[in-house]
């Protein structure tokens, strides 16, 4: 794709970074277009739609899970940074271009790490990071995470999807997988309590007719 640029007189003398930035802009321009984006997202295929729907249901049913159930340290449980990170994850649904979506993931990660570094004094590791990311994703109300993950991986140019950004995308994928398989054994909770609360949320979900939007007092604030 870069050859037409390199040979065009307007890009004469441009270095590699210039060309890369041009391609970034082009990618954002095309995929950031509402109609182009919608046509892609409406045609992700039935399997992805089903997975997104199932995940939304699971996330709805799991809203009783608290930070302490994931053994997140007390000083982090009520930290305002979690709200910011949660909004960043939620924003994945609201932006269109792959690079913008990836930036949301990256910013959420950066917010969490900054908090971890500030509160602990030493460098934070994946051991501290992942439970918090899981919690933040669970509370995010993001509704198309599987499709978004696939879209980011498919449509971001590979040369730009490397290093740290790639790592955080995989972390998000991990968090989603964990939520999708979360049960009483994978978190710190009384199994009966898990069962009862899950069932009750599930009934609520059915009553709402399997609605995707999960708006309730308890989920709008991570401190709840």
């Amino acid at each position: 794709m870069e050859n037409p640029f390199k040979t065009h007189k307007l890009w004469k003398g441009a270095d590699d970074e210039d060309v890369q930035e041009t391609l970034d802009a082009l990618e954002a321009y095309i995929l950031g277009d509402e109609q182009v984006f919608n046509s892609i997202f409406k045609n992700v295929g039935e399997p992805w739609e089903r997975r997104d729907h199932n995940l939304s249901k699971r996330m709805f049913c799991l809203q009783f899970v608290k930070a302490e159930n994931l053994d997140i340290k007390k000083i982090h449980q009520n930290h305002p940074a979690l709200t910011l990170a949660r909004k960043m994850i939620h924003q994945i649904d609201e932006v269109r271009a792959p690079q913008e979506k990836i930036e949301c993931v990256f910013r959420a990660a950066r917010i969490i790490y900054r908090m971890l570094n500030e509160t602990s004094g030493e460098s934070a590791s994946a051991d501290d990071f992942l439970p918090i990311l899981i919690f933040v994703v669970l509370r995010s109300q993001a509704s198309r995470l599987y499709s978004s993950l696939d879209y980011m991986a498919q449509f971001r140019r590979p040369s730009r999807l490397s290093g740290e950004r790639h790592y955080y995308l995989v972390q998000l994928q991990t968090a989603v997988a964990f939520i999708d398989h979360m049960d009483a054994a994978s978190i710190t909770i009384n199994p009966e309590e898990f069962e009862v609360k899950y069932k009750s949320r599930e009934r609520e979900w059915e009553e709402r007719g399997g609605q995707v939007t999960i708006v309730s007092e308890s989920v709008s604030d991570p401190r709840a």
Partner: peptide, 9 residues
Amino acid sequence: TTIQASFLS
């Protein structure tokens, strides 16, 4: 330039 210790190059 990395923000933390989980991804290092």
